[in-house]
Design a protein around this nucleic acid. Structure first.
Lengths: 341, 341
DNA sequence: CTGTAATATACAATGGATTGTATTAAGAGC
DNA sequence: GCTCTTAATACAATCCATTGTATATTACAG
């Protein structure tokens, strides 16, 4: 049953095609690359020879000759976690789709801080979420490779970047709670050493300020994005002497944890506590009460990054653009107007 | 601020290194490739020159010269959905990790049925889940490319494949329910035109048979894996005249839906109904009752696939292996011994 | 029918490594 | 010091396509 077959076979080159069709390899090359000035008669002969011999030009020879590579490397940290899977795959999907559309090959690098990227043979780089990849990013720029960063607004480097407006998204979320009549609004932060979490906190503050609501430090619960810390934050929040009536949580996975804690403590969502998350994690759809959240345009961000990279490659020089994409509030069931407000 | 810098720079070749270190390019090549017989004095000179000039050999020239490519393409369908994100990223992570370990470059292809893969310049292919990719798979084999299929047990082609034992996993799940005293065990299937769903159904039947429990067609609820169909299946299951006391659901996302329906209908989980899912979808951890499920060794499967591919590449001929990995039961809170059983 | 312009094609260099073969240098043995 | 063997190195062909330049062919006007 198991047929053992040679996997190597000498491959046919442009020279074979030239011989077969009785023209020079130059002409064959012109036909293949659709550069003008080939007699119709010869073009047909060449095309037939190509078909007969099943000729496919060697990309290595092409790249060597042209010095151009159509390979784009996507660098993503090797994190784990539910939302992260979702995030990463959305990014990969977006980048992959656009690469296909633009005829680019997508090389994937899952990295951690100690990873060394070879960068060899790559025509451009896309970095997702540069925490822990800063060195590699600078390396890429130093080598003069066209480079784009997504999901992080890089202020201190001359590099194109496409990020989500975390601050604005957070502000929208909190504004929504304010519109529902809430005044006692808590915030469970993510890891505020990360840009995203810091910006979300900033947006929270800004919304309060614009609505003349006094900022209360005791309504801020700092976490590292983990479920464990979300849990204790939720407990403290609910058991507080003067508890908030609404909470803006920096991630959906934490928001789900808050909902679970509230349930355990006999609180009703959204009756006793309105909750807004961030991320639009699909897990937020399960469970008895679907989660109102802030959606990040991940696919669009990813697609834009390839377009921007392609622009840089075509331009042959670095002229970075900084793009901020809006984050959209997705209203579901976890919030409700303040009773008797 | 925006410094405009040339992105192109002439790159240094092995010839530059040879000149710099006063030896021939052959010697430089030998030093770089660690082939023996180079005088220590010259080796050091060359290595210094390499360092000074920051020389990195052109992979295109290397691949052209050797005819070998260390690029592995991973082909994954472009599905959507929560579990699929999780699944795909686990696969990507596993393949990526092993590729890094084996010094292979990972090219990613997200495909649908109409995608045409170029395969040019690729040294090996890994197909995940070949539904809709059958043509590409056969193409790859026809071209004599080293090829591995994961997550699908291919019986009718001479190709290496690494799959999860869906049948055995399902059998374990149902056995567990039987051990808890259940006799009325329903099954909500996935799309039984897919291999995975069909095998899970088979495992369910086998467990019943081995325990001499009569198979009841009215305990089988066919779905297409969608939440909607899971919902109506759950309603029918719960409202039946002689309802089952336990249910084995072909996927976690459907199992979560079943739990939600049970809750809505005032049923207690696991008091009134024991549930086992399949997949070990992280979403199963949220919610009031964590889900007992069958875990697939995705990462391991992915890693093994790269190893197997590497073996085929080294072997230079096709001698396929078919590997089935066990699926493990993960016991959590959603099952309980049959009361008064 | 010829001169000129435009078109079509070919030659040969180029890109950057690997590698079989030839050649030289070095060390061993007497 | 002089063979002889072995280690070290160099030469040049090869992998395959692209492309600037040179040449050949064609077309057209006069």
């Amino acid at each position: 049953m198991t047929r053992t077959k040679k996997l190597t076979s000498k491959n046919i080159s442009i020279l074979d095609v030239a011989r077969e069709s009785g023209v020079s390899i130059t002409t064959v090359s012109r036909v293949i690359n659709k550069i003008g000035n080939v007699k119709e008669k010869n073009r047909i002969r060449v095309m037939n020879a190509v078909k007969d011999l099943k000729f496919q030009p060697s990309i290595f020879a092409q790249r060597l000759a042209t010095g151009k590579s159509n390979v784009v490397a996507l660098v993503i940290p090797r994190y784990e976690g539910v939302f992260y899977s979702f995030y990463a795959l959305e990014v990969i999907r977006g980048v992959g789709t656009m690469c296909e559309a633009l005829k680019l090959d997508l090389l994937l690098h899952l990295t951690d801080a100690r990873s060394v990227l070879s960068l060899r043979g790559v025509g451009g780089m896309i970095f997702s979420d540069i925490i822990g990849n800063r060195a590699q990013l600078e390396d890429s720029l130093a080598k003069g490779l066209p480079t784009v960063v997504i999901n992080y607004y890089v202020e201190d480097l001359d590099v194109s970047c496409i990020a989500v407006d975390n601050c604005g998204g957070a502000e929208n979320a909190v504004n929504y709670l304010i519109e529902l009549g809430h005044r006692k609004i808590a915030h469970i932060t993510g890891d505020v050493t990360t840009q995203a979490a810091a910006k979300r906190l900033e947006g929270y503050k800004r919304a309060l300020e614009k609505n003349s609501i006094k900022f209360r430090e005791d309504y801020i619960f700092y976490t590292d994005y983990s479920r464990g810390q979300a849990r204790s934050a939720a407990e403290n929040l609910i058991k507080a002497i003067d508890p908030a009536t609404a909470v803006f949580v920096a991630s959906d996975s934490m928001a789900l944890e808050v909902m679970a804690v509230a349930r355990e403590l006999g609180k009703n969502i959204p009756g006793d506590l309105s909750i807004v998350g961030f991320d639009d994690n699909p897990s937020g759809l399960y469970g008895p009460v679907s989660l109102t959240t802030v959606r990040q345009p991940l696919i669009r961000m990813a697609e834009e990054s390839v377009k921007e990279l392609n622009r840089l490659i075509a331009l042959k020089k670095n002229s970075p653009k900084k793009i901020l994409l809006p984050a959209e509030l997705v209203i579901r069931e976890s919030c409700k107007p303040l009773a008797g407000g």
